[in-house]
Design a protein around this nucleic acid. Structure first.
Lengths: 198, 198
DNA sequence: TCGATTACAAACCGACTGTCGGTATACGAA
DNA sequence: TTCGTATACCGACAGTCGGTTTGTAATCGA
């Protein structure tokens, strides 16, 4: 999980608060990933953290807000890693390909599978879920797709959505014991077909 | 919801039981669709049905089993309607196109959106969810896709998965206020790109 | 006719989420 | 330095929920 360095720039109180939030976030991330949203009790998070209910509810409005914070942090982490993966690649199609493959590999992480791909839509509700995807994976994919110039402007948004859904599905399949090499080859082929301009 | 005709072929006890199950199923379907799985309490289902907890737990092992039954019935209904939509179409590509468009229109139903597309994966767990999709939408799509002969055998399974995910995403977008005509055109274009062979 | 099975009822239990009054301590202005 | 305030945290408590168990009436099959 995230490591912040507050010391110096912040005062003691804010520092302690932020540290507590980070601790709760780290524990909640692990538990949500292991047992899902429903299967994780606030009780369990409290027990592992050694904090009181009051402390948790002081920092997060409720179980769903805690999940949302976990999701946000996870998505942000993914974004950073994908940006790293495509850094320095200038060709748009190649950049898209690399980013997609990087994402599939990242999705091997059970934390990402469970939290981002499975629980998020039902816990956040579709609207919030859409908004968050817009800020992260979807936004990136759409930009990359636009750069390739392979999709007519009128279809760009919808094609980006469909492509992301397709890729996420592949990521899940790989994550659940599917053969990674075959899946990656299939995704590349799929991408090629969608991008090919006639 | 389903209308069965037990009378005559069944005895009184079985008939009453089946009627009770149907009633619970109908109420649960509506509540799950309106408030989601988490937002629907067994209490609420009991209150609307006028039955006791004992009755419900006699027929369904638990809340998740109730949801699974609701999902099963919903999927079966969808299957029937899609088969109807493609009945009589001989050209594989055209059959696929019609089935896909039919599915997108069906997904305008909030019941299908919430239960099938949003809650199902997290409630059933990924494995069970996969197995059920195999029996319904995914199975149909895969067969239709194979018939078009546009996808190499080695990629058929994965491409069917990706395509279904893409279509489901479109269905959700349409359902949540997206423009239906644009979306349908985009899906057709997407399909064309994926199916195009060379 | 009569034991077995089925359908349903209702009290009950443990677990869980969220609230609330309260305490301690760092902060910032006077 | 002092002191009111905001922040961090505590722990008891209420209400809800999912699920269990015990009991009862009615039907079924032999």
């Amino acid at each position: 999980m995230e490591v912040r360095s507050y010391s110096g720039s912040m005062n003691l109180k804010a520092e302690r608060g932020a540290a507590t939030r980070d601790q709760l976030l780290a524990i909640a991330t692990r538990l949500f990933a292991e047992h899902g949203y429903e299967g994780t009790s606030i009780e369990a998070v409290l027990q592992e953290s050694g904090l009181s209910r009051g402390a948790l509810y002081h920092h997060y409005a409720g179980k769903d807000a805690l999940f949302e914070a976990v999701l946000e942090a996870t998505e942000a982490g993914i974004g950073v890693k994908i940006v790293e993966a495509v850094a320095g690649i200038t060709d748009p199609a190649e950049s898209l390909r690399s980013g997609v493959l990087a994402w599939i590999r990242l999705a091997g992480d059970p934390v990402i599978q469970r939290i981002v791909l499975i629980d998020a839509p039902s816990v956040l509700g579709w609207e919030k879920w859409r908004a968050m995807e817009e800020r992260y994976s979807f936004g990136m994919l759409k930009a990359a797709l636009r750069a390739t110039d392979a999709i007519p402007a009128g279809f760009l948004d919808l094609h980006a959505h469909m492509l992301l859904a397709a890729i996420n599905e592949s990521a899940l399949l790989v994550a659940r014991g599917g053969d990674r090499e075959t899946a990656e080859a299939a995704v590349e082929e799929f991408l090629r077909r969608v991008l090919r301009s006639h």
